[in-house]
Deep mutational scan, measured.
Amino acid sequence: KTYTFRVRIVDEETGEEKEIEVTAKSEEEAKKAAEELKKKYPNLKVELE
Rank of each mutant, 00 (worst) to 15 (best):
F5M: 05
Y3S: 04
A30R: 03
E19S: 13
V22Y: 07
T14C: 05
I9G: 01
F5R: 00
A33H: 09
K18I: 15
E21Q: 10
E19F: 15
E49K: 05
Y41P: 03
I9N: 00
L48K: 04
N43Y: 11
E28F: 08
E17S: 13
E21N: 06
T14K: 02
L48E: 05
I9L: 13
L48H: 06
T2D: 11
L44R: 05
E36D: 10
E28I: 09
L37M: 09
E35S: 08
R6P: 02
F5E: 01
E36C: 12
K38Y: 11
I9S: 00
V46H: 04
E12Q: 11
L44I: 08
V22H: 01
R8E: 01
Y3T: 05
E35Q: 11
A30L: 14
I20R: 01
T23Y: 14
A33R: 10
K25R: 12
A24I: 02
K38G: 07
F5S: 00
E49M: 15
K38W: 09
A33P: 00
E27A: 11
K31T: 07
L37N: 01
V46N: 03
P42V: 04
E19M: 15
L48R: 05
I20G: 00
A33T: 10
K31A: 09
K32W: 11
K32S: 08
K31I: 13
E49G: 12
T14D: 02
V10N: 03
A33L: 13
E12V: 12
A30E: 00
Y3Q: 05
V22N: 00
E21G: 02
V10K: 08
T2A: 06
T4R: 10
E21S: 10
G15D: 02
K40Y: 06
E16P: 00
A24Q: 01
E47T: 14
I20K: 01
V10Q: 04
V22A: 00
S26F: 02
T2R: 10
A24C: 14
V7Y: 10
R8Y: 14
V10P: 03
Y41W: 09
L44M: 13
T2S: 10
K25W: 13
E17D: 04
Y41A: 03
E16V: 08
K25T: 13
A24G: 09
E13V: 13
K45L: 10
K45Q: 08
E49N: 11
V7F: 14
E27M: 14
T14A: 03
R8I: 15
L44Q: 06
T14W: 01
K1G: 10
E35G: 05
E12A: 10
T23P: 04
K1T: 11
S26T: 13
K25M: 11
K38P: 01
K31N: 08
I9Y: 13
E36L: 11
R8M: 09
L48G: 06
L44C: 15
V22F: 15
S26W: 01
A24K: 02
V46Y: 09
E13R: 12
R6C: 10
E21M: 14
E36R: 09
E17L: 11
G15V: 00
E28G: 07
T23H: 14
I20C: 11
G15H: 03
E28N: 08
T14P: 00
F5L: 08
L48F: 14
V10M: 07
A34N: 02
K1P: 14
K32F: 09
E13H: 09
E21K: 08
A24L: 06
E16F: 10
T2Y: 13
N43I: 04
N43E: 05
E19K: 06
S26Y: 02
S26A: 01
E27R: 12
E28A: 11
R8P: 02
V7P: 00
V22G: 02
E49Y: 08
K31W: 14
E21W: 15
E47S: 11
L37E: 02
A33M: 15
K45T: 11
D11M: 03
D11P: 00
G15M: 03
T23N: 07
V46M: 06
T14I: 02
V10I: 13
N43M: 08
K45S: 07
K25C: 14
L48M: 08
K1S: 09
V7A: 03
E21I: 15
P42D: 03
K40R: 11
E28W: 10
V46L: 07
R8L: 13
K25L: 12
T14N: 04
E27Y: 15
A33F: 15
K32E: 11
K45W: 07
I20E: 03
K45A: 06
E28H: 08
R6T: 15
T4Q: 05
E28Q: 07
I9P: 00
V7E: 00
N43L: 08
Y41L: 04
R8V: 14
V46Q: 03
K38H: 06
N43W: 11
L37Y: 09
E17I: 15
Y3C: 06
K25V: 13
K32R: 12
K40L: 12
V7S: 00
A30W: 08
E17Y: 13
E36W: 11
A34Q: 07
V7K: 00
K25Y: 14
L37H: 02
E27L: 15
E47D: 09
V7G: 01
T2P: 07
T23L: 12
E29G: 05
A30M: 08
A34M: 15
K39R: 09
E29F: 04
K32L: 13
E21C: 12
K39C: 08
K1W: 10
K25S: 14
K39Q: 11
P42M: 03
R6Q: 06
D11K: 01
K38V: 12
T4M: 06
K39V: 09
E16W: 14
E36Q: 10
G15I: 00
P42I: 03
E36H: 07
E13W: 07
T23Q: 13
K1C: 14
E29P: 00
V10L: 10
T2C: 14
A24H: 03
I20P: 00
E27I: 14
D11V: 04
K39T: 07
N43K: 04
N43P: 03
P42A: 04
G15W: 03
G15R: 02
V7R: 00
E12P: 15
A34F: 15
Y41K: 03
T4W: 09
K39I: 09
E13A: 12
K40N: 06
K18D: 05
E17P: 03
L44P: 02
K25Q: 13
E27S: 06
E28L: 10
N43S: 08
K1Q: 10
K25N: 14
E16Y: 09
K38R: 14
E28M: 09
P42W: 03
I9F: 12
Y41G: 02
T4P: 04
I9R: 00
K18Q: 12
E21P: 02
P42E: 03
L44G: 05
N43A: 07
A24R: 04
V10A: 03
E36M: 13
E16N: 05
N43T: 09
A34Y: 15
E49L: 15
A30C: 08
E29W: 05
V10W: 12
P42C: 06
L44K: 09
T4I: 12
R6G: 02
